[in-house]
Amino acid sequence: MTKNRVGALVMLTLSIAYGAMALNLPQAPGMEASGVTPASLPIALSVFGIVIAVLVFILPGRSGGDDSVIATFKGLRWRRIGYLFLLMTGYGLAIKPFGFFMSTTLFLGGGFRIMGERRLKMILPISIAVTVVFWFALTRLLSVYLEPGVLRFLESN
């Protein structure tokens, strides 16, 4: 399977799903008269999406270059990316309960570690320092409110 085809297939599915949802949109009150409803554009888009996706699928792509999907996706650092995704999701989960300060320090530290840096004496100070700088600039200089989370004493602005 070529890259184009995989992409086209995904887009085709998306367009069909989108169209199906669009057809289920409720009618707007008081808009019966006009022909254009909130569902009009979505349905049109869905049709465009399906047509173009099919075209991309069947037409031969630009020749030359590695078109095989397997080849493109193989041999890359998927594990590292996986960890980074987990880290980012974790940040989203942690930022409110743990507070900005704690979560950011952990995020940066974790990120450095995932990226291959092992020296604790580099990871710890740098993540804390960056967090402090941002915390300071945001809460003091720009009076933006940041969740203090676990570190209650950071509450006052």
Partner: peptide, 28 residues
Amino acid sequence: FLKGMLMTVLGVMLSTVGMDNSTGIQRF
């Protein structure tokens, strides 16, 4: 070109997510 257009269509689809301002209907 075609792939670009396909992505443009996707972009417009994404812009329809949310409450429709004119009618108050929630979409996607």
